[in-house]
């Protein structure tokens, strides 16, 4: 026993280390967002929003995606409850422009069991948005909120190339 005392102490420290990683690092409530535009899917992992956790109040991080005007943008939002207790929350998603709320995309009460996940899905259709005049802002902010968490995803709509081709004299177009 006395001969191996340092080995046992090292083992105790190792187990404490594992416990801290599990309790402080793994456990909690995490959210992952999957955004699909056309055939391309982008995954916003929970660690993307981490700087917001340690930042002063009011500091918000945006995630930017771009889509061609007319394309639908699909969202799949996953809340992972890595706790021993159930978690209930109201998940809301809405479209904003210049700090003005335009309309709601999704609103549903979700109850998530221990170590379980809840998935919310919705779609941002270009038909619901006002077509911007060339030269004005064509960005929309999708605010996703649940509990005290708010995520901001900025969707930047751009015009397809043909739009510009029609407004540019043919002599200036380089084929």
């Amino acid at each position: 026993m006395r001969k191996n005392i340092f080995l046992y102490l090292a083992l105790a420290c190792f187990l404490a280390l594992i416990a801290i990683f599990f309790v402080d690092g793994y456990m909690g409530i995490y959210d992952t967002t999957y955004v699909t535009v056309g055939e391309q899917e982008q995954i916003i992992e929970p660690d993307y929003w981490l700087p917001q956790r340690d930042a002063p109040a009011g500091y918000e991080i945006d995630y930017y995606i771009s889509a061609e005007w007319g394309q639908n943008v699909s969202f799949r939002y996953e809340i992972d409850n890595r706790r021993f207790a159930s978690y209930s929350t109201l998940v809301q998603a809405s479209v904003w422009q210049e700090n003005e709320k335009l309309f709601d995309l999704f609103s549903e009460e979700k109850s998530i069991g221990p170590f379980d996940k809840a998935i919310a899905e919705w779609e941002l259709s270009a038909e619901e948005l006002e077509e911007p005049v060339a030269g004005t802002s064509n960005q929309y902010t999708i605010k996703i909120s649940w509990g005290e968490v708010t995520r901001r995803i900025v969707v930047d709509f751009y015009y397809p190339e043909e739009y510009y081709r029609d407004s540019v004299p043919p002599s200036l177009i380089i084929e």
Binding site: N4, F6, L7, L9, A10, C13, F14, A16, L17, I20, F21, D24, G25, Y26, G28, P46, D47, L50, D54
Partner: peptide, 28 residues
């Protein structure tokens, strides 16, 4: 995988524990 999710106090305690693991193993 998980160090980015640790809080500041959690990271500090982990640092001490790693020093403890290596130190005790060295002594052993």
């Amino acid at each position: 995988e998980y160090v980015k999710y640790l809080s500041e106090p959690g990271r500090l305690v982990c640092l001490f524990l790693i020093v403890g693991v290596l130190g005790f193993l060295g002594k052993y």
